[in-house]
């Protein structure tokens, strides 16, 4: 949900991005309207519009006049490759830092990851 870490319009873009990546919003599916977003998250409609427009500018969404917003072809793939680039910084680094703090060796860490994802 919405928090204070960054501008709300950015958070709205990211929420939509997440839904596109996870498949909740498949290619060519319709995205909720600005006012629906505003009402759902209790945010200003202008802010919601800004978050959506940002994705339109990036070509991830496109507008059908008089109908609404839709997920563009290839949007999930593009988003995935973007996210992969940031994966190391965002997830691996804090993980290794914390592991180092606790004295967890690399081998141990790897086997922990394996066993966790196996379950």
């Amino acid at each position: 949900m919405i928090d204070d870490s960054k501008p709300i319009f950015l958070q709205i873009s990211e929420l939509i991005e997440n839904d596109i990546i996870s498949g909740t919003l498949p290619e060519e599916s319709q995205v909720p309207s600005t006012n629906e977003f505003a009402a759902f998250y209790r945010i200003n409609p202008a802010t919601a519009a800004k978050g959506i427009n940002r994705l339109v500018e990036e070509g991830l969404l496109y507008k059908k006049r008089g109908i609404g917003m839709f997920v563009a072809q290839g949007a999930p793939a593009r988003l995935r490759s973007n996210r992969r680039e940031h994966f190391a910084n965002q997830f691996i680094m804090p993980l290794t830092a914390e592991a180092a703090k606790l004295g967890i060796e690399m081998d141990e860490l790897l086997s922990m990851i394996k066993s966790t994802s196996a379950t």
Binding site: T34, N35, A38, A39, R42, I43, N44, P45
Partner: peptide
């Protein structure tokens, strides 16, 4: 109040 405000503002800026 907040809900109705957002709703009504969206229809009637």
């Amino acid at each position: 109040f907040y809900d109705r405000l957002v709703e009504d503002f969206a229809q009637h800026p």
